[in-house]
Amino acid sequence: MSLSRSSAANSAKDTIDIVTGLVLLVLSLVLAFYLIPNYIGEPPILQNPMMSPRWLPNIVSWLMLAFALLLVAQGVLTKTAKEGDERKLVKGPVRRFLVMIAGILVYVFFFEMLGAILSGVLATVLLFLAHPVRTWWAYGFAIALPVGVTLLFVNVMNVPLPLMPF
């Protein structure tokens, strides 16, 4: 299997692990020194330190810190597995990825505004175009399914999805 990024593959370390470990290291430091003291309230009276809402988050953040360090160490010491590394993708065209992102964004931004049907149709068509579906009748699904599934949710399952923009 050919890798698109093979620069680090030859040296005796696992770059991905090192980077992951460093990111998690920073994350755990942020948790321990910023988020936990600032975003978890502590009640004035505590019979036992283990009762504190901060107790478990503190412990977990320190454990994260320790294991992030271990991961960095492990990354420095072990070699990257060259064959069959599931972490790497053979990348396709960027445009396709961007159109997919656009499709997802349609959902998150317009779901309530446009309603389930319109946003469903729009996003599905976008995704069909992204990884081009060339069978024309398949586009019928892009319309029929959002309509059908929405009506199923709303009328049969009693789940009030937003229907229409008006």
Binding site: I117, L118, V121, L122, V125, Y139, A142, I143, V147, L151, M164, F166
Partner: peptide, 13 residues
């Protein structure tokens, strides 16, 4: 395609 979609939706509405 979009206009077809809208037509279909208009119908549902």
């Amino acid at each position: 395609l979009l206009s077809t979609a809208c037509l279909a939706l208009g119908g549902t509405a």
